[in-house]
Nucleic acid binder design. Structure first.
Length: 104
DNA sequence: CCCGATTCCCCGC
DNA sequence: GCGGGGAATCGGG
């Protein structure tokens, strides 16, 4: 479970906050998406939405952590690993979960 | 010290 | 009611 992820992240040299965010992200239910704020709230820092994005940006396990499932509060995908990646992320979400996206 | 995958509030029309 | 801009906030290098 997520516990496995935390142990894995530990060897990546990440901090507690990083691991916390990544684990919370990996815990996102299938067929659904979570907002940065939701993740921040989940880890106990509802105001750390920005830090949450930072943690996801350092996500060393993109195969275990569906960072593409994490979007903005207004329904937009926000950004991704690199510029323009948002389009791929949106496409991925539509193909994987078809969640409540904004619609481009 | 500065920046970053964000969010919310206020103002104007 | 809608759109745009600025400030606030948290952590990491």
């Amino acid at each position: 479970m997520q516990q496995r992820i935390e142990a894995l992240l530990s060897k990546y040299g990440l901090t507690d906050f990083q691991k916390l965010v990544l684990v919370a992200t990996s815990s996102i239910p299938k067929g659904k998406t979570a907002t940065y704020k939701e993740i921040a709230k989940r880890i106990g820092k509802p105001k750390a939405y920005r830090a949450v994005g930072n943690a996801l940006a350092a996500n060393p396990l993109p195969v275990v952590i569906p960072c593409h499932r994490v979007i903005k509060s207004n329904g937009s995908v926000g950004s991704y690993s690199r510029r323009g990646g948002a389009a791929a992320k949106l496409r991925l979400l539509k193909r994987e979960n078809a969640s409540s996206l904004k619609g481009l």
